[in-house]
Deep mutational scan, measured.
Amino acid sequence: MALNTPQITPTKKITVRAIGEELPRGDYQRCPQCDMLFSLPEINSHQSAYCPRCQAKIRDGRDWSLTRLAAMAFTMLLLMPFAWGEPLLHIWLLGIRIDANVMQGIWQMTKQGDAITGSMVFFCVIGAPLILVTSIAYLWFGNRLGMNLRPVLLMLERLKEWVMLDIYLVGIGVASIKVQDYAHIQAGVGLFSFVALVILTTVTLSHLNVEELWERFYPQRPATRRDEKLRVCLGCHFTGYPDQRGRCPRCHIPLRLRRRHSLQKCWAALLASIVLLLPANLLPISIIYLNGGRQEDTILSGIMSLASSNIAVAGIVFIASILVPFTKVIVMFTLLLSIHFKCQQGLRTRILLLRMVTWIGRWSMLDLFVISLTMSLINRDQILAFTMGPAAFYFGAAVILTILAVEWLDSRLLWDAHESGNARFDD
């Protein structure tokens, strides 16, 4: 018995066209964080690309023209004298008006014999932002004059995390709450300039795509075929072959399989920071003279006294001054041990922890910024005066060393310790 099946006739004509040209192939790229070699397709503007294995951002879609970056830099340069030299806060102490600005706080630190601690604050609040705007201006002028731009481009990517104007702005709020127990506070004209400078700096850093600047100024022929001998440069993120001198053909720094002496430098910085954190938390970090009496505060006791007036601000200072430094030390110690013992479990967790400490590390400088600003506000000789204690130097040095330890660690070593050939990683 035959089955009668109805015929289905399409209502619209289906047209099949042959592909007349070869589909576009992607360029081969190595991930600078996990060293995976993959094919990167062509990316349009405002599109980002991520590593298929570790999800690290390979290409950032946010990109401004150099002219727009230069305009932002010149605007920031105009704001800087007002943000640093004009009063941020006014207080009335014992019937006398006192003005506080950024430069005055750094000068008070240096004047009291601790120039190293003052230079830490100076670099993060004044030096690094000033280098940022002058570097962008150098790129703008240098591109037109045919100057060598490689050193500036190499420095810009590392400079971003040292620009800490946003953290200093939080420190202004913390210092205001600490001082309000002794005097009446009012915002100064410099505060508005400083807030504007923070906003412009944040926007500029978020749109400063150094890798795209490398592509514009020093374009290189990408690798179009897969080759395990391809290496990625950690300076400019170019994937290719080393030249005859073993250097990256684009930025001219040595092109090595792994960062040289990464573990040794990381261990040295980490152990030194552990040693410095002990006096930083045991010795007094601030000293207040009130009517001839002397009151010393460690980091913890200062947080407890701050909690009596504002528990939320005390929580912020606790996280930045105690929780973050010790968390960074514990995480980095764990990561280094996992590399030495070739741990194969929990790779995803370790990668996330490394990215976390990379982002939060700079916030530990908050305590030094609060001390710097408070020193310029309260300084009335023996009637009422505020000065920093010996722990300030140890704390600042420990924070900087932990930042350097994270920067010096080559994250690809975590993958080397893991089993080879993993296309995915999980716990």
Rank of each mutant, 00 (worst) to 15 (best):
M1R: 00
A2P: 15
L3N: 12
N4P: 07
P6R: 07
I8L: 07
I8P: 09
T9L: 06
P10E: 07
I19N: 09
L23K: 08
P24T: 07
R25L: 07
G26P: 07
D27Q: 09
Y28C: 07
Y28D: 11
R30G: 12
P32V: 10
P32R: 10
Q33H: 08
Q33R: 11
C34K: 00
D35A: 04
L37E: 09
F38Y: 13
F38I: 06
L40T: 07
L40I: 07
L40G: 08
S45E: 07
H46G: 05
P52T: 09
P52M: 04
C54L: 00
K57R: 05
G61N: 12
R68I: 09
A71P: 02
A73I: 06
T75W: 01
T75L: 05
M76W: 05
L77H: 05
L79P: 04
M80Y: 05
M80L: 04
P81D: 10
A83M: 03
P87T: 07
L88R: 00
I91V: 05
W92E: 02
L94P: 00
I96S: 03
D99N: 08
M103A: 04
I106G: 04
K111D: 14
G113Y: 07
G113D: 13
G113F: 09
G113R: 07
T117P: 11
T117I: 02
G118C: 08
M120E: 03
F122V: 14
I126Y: 15
G127R: 00
G127Q: 03
P129G: 08
L130R: 01
L130A: 14
I131C: 11
I136Q: 08
A137H: 12
A137M: 11
Y138T: 07
W140N: 05
F141M: 11
N143H: 15
L149S: 12
L149P: 10
R150C: 05
P151T: 04
V152F: 05
L153V: 11
M155D: 02
E157T: 14
R158H: 08
L159S: 03
E161F: 02
W162D: 01
M164H: 07
I167S: 02
G171D: 09
I172Y: 02
A175T: 14
S176R: 03
I177K: 03
I177R: 04
K178Q: 08
Q180L: 13
Q180K: 08
D181R: 01
Q186P: 02
G188N: 05
G188H: 09
G190S: 03
A196G: 09
L197N: 04
V198R: 05
I199R: 01
I199C: 15
I199T: 14
T202K: 15
L205A: 13
L205E: 14
N209R: 14
E211N: 14
F217N: 11
R221E: 14
T224I: 14
D227W: 14
E228S: 14
K229L: 12
K229N: 13
C233W: 00
Y241K: 13
P242G: 10
D243P: 06
Q244G: 13
Q244P: 12
R245D: 11
C248I: 00
C248G: 00
P249D: 11
P254L: 03
H261E: 06
S262F: 08
Q264W: 03
K265P: 04
W267A: 15
L271K: 10
S273T: 15
I274W: 14
L276D: 05
L277M: 03
A280S: 13
L283W: 03
I285Q: 01
S286Y: 01
I287S: 06
L290R: 01
L290G: 01
T298A: 15
S301H: 06
I303Q: 03
S305L: 09
L306E: 00
S308K: 12
S309L: 01
S309R: 03
A312C: 13
A314F: 09
A314K: 04
F318Y: 10
I322V: 11
V324W: 15
P325W: 05
V329M: 08
V329H: 08
V329G: 09
I330M: 13
M332P: 06
F333R: 00
L335H: 10
L335D: 04
Q345D: 13
Q345A: 14
G346V: 14
R348V: 13
R348E: 11
T349F: 14
L354W: 05
R355Y: 15
T358K: 13
I360F: 08
R362H: 04
S364K: 01
F369Q: 06
T374E: 00
T374D: 00
L377M: 06
I378L: 03
D381L: 01
I383G: 01
A385E: 03
A385C: 10
F386E: 00
F386Q: 00
T387I: 14
T387V: 13
T387M: 05
F393R: 07
F395A: 00
G396E: 03
A397F: 06
I400F: 03
T402Y: 03
I403H: 02
A405I: 11
E407G: 11
W408N: 04
D410C: 00
R412N: 01
W415D: 08
H418T: 08
E419I: 11
S420M: 11
F425L: 13
F425Y: 15
D427M: 11
